[in-house]
Simulated scan of single mutants.
Amino acid sequence: MARILDLPKVELHLHFEGAAPPAFIRGLAQEKKTDLSKIFRADGSYAYRDFVHFLSVYEAATSVLKGPEDFARLCTALMEESAKDGVVYSETFVSPDFCGGGDVGAWKEYLHAIREAAEAGEKTYGVTLRGIVTCIRHFGPDKAKAAARCAAETAGDWITGFGMGGDENMGEQGDFAYSFDMAAEAGLRLTTHAGEWRGPREVENAVTDLRGMERIGHGVRAIEDPRLCDILAEREITLEVCPGSNVFLGVYPSLDKHPIQQLRARGVKVTVSTDDPPFFHTTLRKEYERLAKTFRWGADIFQDLNRTALDAAFCDAATKEAIKKKLEPAP
Rank of each mutant, 00 (worst) to 15 (best):
D35F: 02
R296L: 09
E234R: 14
L7F: 11
L255G: 07
Y48C: 12
Y46A: 09
P329G: 08
G187P: 01
K143C: 09
A148H: 05
P96V: 00
K324D: 15
E321F: 03
V94R: 00
P243C: 09
A292E: 07
P22L: 12
A313T: 09
P259Q: 08
F314I: 01
V57D: 11
A117S: 13
P68K: 04
K324A: 15
I159F: 12
V251L: 11
T282L: 07
E109P: 00
F162D: 05
E168N: 07
A29Y: 05
R201E: 15
F180S: 07
T274S: 08
K123M: 02
R149L: 08
L291Q: 10
E153P: 07
G174M: 00
L232V: 00
A309P: 01
S63K: 11
R201C: 08
K269W: 00
K123W: 05
A42Q: 15
A83V: 01
I136Q: 07
G126V: 04
E31H: 04
R290T: 11
G44I: 08
G140W: 08
A177H: 13
V203D: 03
R264G: 13
A322F: 02
F93R: 01
A118G: 10
F40N: 11
A61S: 15
V203W: 05
C99N: 14
F280W: 12
G131K: 04
G174Q: 06
A2K: 04
E204K: 14
E196C: 08
R227T: 12
L232Q: 12
E59D: 10
N169P: 03
A183V: 01
H281L: 14
S82H: 06
A265G: 14
I4P: 01
I231V: 12
E91K: 02
M164L: 15
E328I: 09
R211Y: 13
D304A: 14
E17M: 11
Y125C: 08
H218Y: 05
N246S: 10
T154N: 10
L228F: 04
W107Y: 13
I301W: 11
L210C: 01
A299Y: 00
P243I: 04
N246Y: 04
E168I: 04
R290V: 02
G101I: 05
C150A: 06
K257N: 08
G18R: 12
L249A: 08
T128G: 07
V207F: 00
E59H: 12
R221V: 05
V57F: 02
H13I: 01
V251C: 14
V104C: 09
A312M: 01
R3D: 15
A120Q: 15
F279R: 07
L14K: 00
L249C: 12
L232M: 05
R115A: 11
V133D: 05
G267C: 11
S63V: 10
E81K: 03
L188S: 09
L190Q: 11
L7D: 13
G67S: 12
P278N: 07
K145E: 06
L55S: 00
K32W: 00
E122N: 06
G126A: 10
V88G: 01
L7G: 14
G219N: 10
R296D: 14
D50S: 10
G298M: 03
D230H: 15
K32Q: 12
A312L: 03
V127N: 05
E204S: 13
C99Q: 12
R3N: 13
D304M: 07
D225V: 02
